[in-house]
């Protein structure tokens, strides 16, 4: 936009405005509750929600739920990524195989990551293998497609260089294809991390898997509105931390993506 104020181009000024915005939001929320504009059967006040969250954090039951959610998410995500990245790289190196499966994978991708849930609970119960299967169904295709597209962007010059120096297929893979695909893989992982966390929470909500989602369902059954707000807010913080961490990873991948990768 053209009519930008000078103020908004300064990094610190922007940070200040952002902080003011967050505080203004909290104050508006609190005063809307106090004046009765925001009814207490719709939302508790900001102070009540914050107090509830503060009381929640030292509770061992809450801590173990957070631990369950994080470990089960990380396990499922790591297994899925560990499978999808090598397979995606293989497809990237085999245009012929990719031509055959490409459209099928693209078609499978929009299947909602909840499809297998009823059957998977039945067959596997609500353990770690269940959440792993759910996460895999949700994000395997996303990572696979992203990795494959990523490994096809390598510049012909880099590949010619590899040929000239008689680099073998394995090293060609590790030294040439992987670094040039890294930023796109990192983007895929960031998107998949967010979705897989949502899938984990969803499995806890519906599948009875222990974790923050289960606490949420219990709070809903008890009609405990401050607790529901505190837990939902905490889930948001969890999502935010995951998003920030993976954005950092993406930035690192982009930074190390020097001229040796060679893709424009």
């Amino acid at each position: 936009m053209q009519n930008t104020l000078k103020l908004t181009s300064n990094k610190w000024a922007r940070l200040g405005i952002s902080l003011c915005g967050v505080f203004a939001f909290f104050i508006l929320w609190e005063s809307a509750s106090r004046t009765g504009l925001l009814r207490s059967d719709v939302a508790p006040s900001f102070m009540d929600t914050a107090a509830e969250l503060g009381a929640l954090i030292p509770e061992p039951q809450f801590q173990s739920a957070v631990g369950d959610t994080l470990s089960s998410w990380l396990f499922g995500f790591a297994v899925t990524a560990g499978l999808a990245i090598p397979i995606g790289l293989l497809f990237g190196a085999n245009p012929w195989a990719w031509k055959w499966f490409n459209s099928t994978f693209e078609a499978i991708r929009p299947i909602p990551p909840i499809v297998l849930l009823p059957l998977a609970i039945l067959v596997m119960g609500s353990g770690r293998s269940f959440t792993t299967v759910m996460i895999a169904q949700g994000v395997f295709w996303i990572i696979l497609l992203q990795v494959t597209y990523g490994s096809t962007v390598i510049s012909p010059v880099a590949l010619d260089t590899a040929t000239v120096f008689k680099v073998g297929p394995w090293r060609r893979y590790l030294i040439f294809r992987l670094p040039s695909a890294a930023p796109i893989i990192a983007t895929g992982l960031r998107i998949a991390a967010g979705i897989s966390l949502a899938v984990e929470i969803m499995s806890e909500l519906i599948g009875g898997v222990p974790g923050v989602g289960q606490l949420l369902i219990a709070a809903q059954a008890g009609n405990d509105l401050p607790l529901i707000y505190a837990l939902t807010g905490f889930t948001g913080l969890l999502g935010l931390v995951v998003a920030v961490l993976f954005r950092g990873l993406e930035r690192v991948a982009l930074k190390n993506h020097g001229p040796k990768g060679g893709a424009e």
Partner: peptide, 15 residues
């Protein structure tokens, strides 16, 4: 946006 949308289900059911 970072809040997984499915986590909003209990809140919206209650409200």
């Amino acid at each position: 946006l970072a809040l997984p949308a499915v986590a909003l289900v209990p809140l919206f059911i209650t409200v």
